[in-house]
Design a protein around this nucleic acid. Sequence first.
DNA 1: ACACAAAAATGACTAAAAGTCAATATTTTT
DNA 2: AAAAATATTGACTTTTAGTCATTTTTGTGT
Lengths: 199, 199
Amino acid sequence: MKKDMNKEPEKESRLLESGFKLFINKGFQDTSIQEIVDDAGVAKGTFYTYFKDKYDIRNKLIAKKSNKLFNDAYKKLKKTDINKLDEQVIFIVDYIINYLEKNKLLLQFISKNLSWGIYTKTINELYQKNETENNTILELFLNGIKEQNIKLENPEVTLYMIIELVSSTCFNSILYKEPLPINEFKPYLYNEIRKLIND
Amino acid sequence: MKKDMNKEPEKESRLLESGFKLFINKGFQDTSIQEIVDDAGVAKGTFYTYFKDKYDIRNKLIAKKSNKLFNDAYKKLKKTDINKLDEQVIFIVDYIINYLEKNKLLLQFISKNLSWGIYTKTINELYQKNETENNTILELFLNGIKEQNIKLENPEVTLYMIIELVSSTCFNSILYKEPLPINEFKPYLYNEIRKLIND
DNA sequence: ACACAAAAATGACTAAAAGTCAATATTTTT
DNA sequence: AAAAATATTGACTTTTAGTCATTTTTGTGT
């Protein structure tokens, strides 16, 4: 039987899932590779056929989980009839915020371990290997601008600022209720997104 | 002789400086505690009287370096006659950006290792122990708003969004020229700051 | 269906780094 | 200047990472 290249090997998945479970529950630093392989029910050596080291599995986990969340939001949007660009962006942001609010452990893991440089590098590597879907948000954004005749001097920069603003502020708002609990914070944030897109 | 509580013990400083030097040059992961103590010329055990582990010294380094940079910018501002709030904030931001541009290794270290949760936690701990100056930016901001009769629904939130936007975007703009090299990026960013404060 | 080759998996092993602590040195207090 | 408190040491133990010769599984050609 020919190997299905679209599926990641079963043991790699098991390692990823065990790693995620342990990182979430015990923290990254306090989880050893031995614990991960024990939990996954594979031998130590197998770990090293799929990952370079503990940092590698962490980076891949963050990239995969974040990317999945993002693509889910995008798919959901396509089922609605929201057509104004700013509201489309806010829909996606809102979906992601609500998801993370219900999955604070995931958010905690991402926010404690994510740094942008590593994230973009990892996403890019996975994308090269066809292991993740592509940057749909940028396409959506550029299409919306064209169709709706929105004037933006530099749309990539605008989108980039929105993404950064959302990710950096929401983490703290959800996890630490700083500077405001997320539900109070949302109006400010969404207002800012509208300004960024429409002004 | 009575111990001077305002000075951190000499060996702690030496460890911090050695740690910084090694983290910058070899990277955090590739630096061992043994190397740090060798470089600082102290025994292994001494490390553990000042720091819990390698993560602890890293967090304290980031907190101290970031805080110093911030306070330097603030002191410099006080020597100017800039009096409009938005321009004051932009002055500080500009000072910090220029500094980091000239010290990319420091920026790289911060951006690779900083996560906001850990940063605020560490700053807070150091502040409790009087090992760092306080949050002057918030005072400046609140004073400016009062004096200049600026109407902001929630100034803390506005300032917070500015800080987040600046830190998250500038890292990438300086280090990776993404989405634009920092000098092209600045106008967008400063424009955004003005909008946040004045709209 | 079998032999053969290639890839994946194993876990005992080595190497490296973390972290401890009883002994010693230094500093502070009385 | 003795006693008490604090800081420092580095040999040692423990923990964890990472390797690799061997075995098992999977895929391919005849």
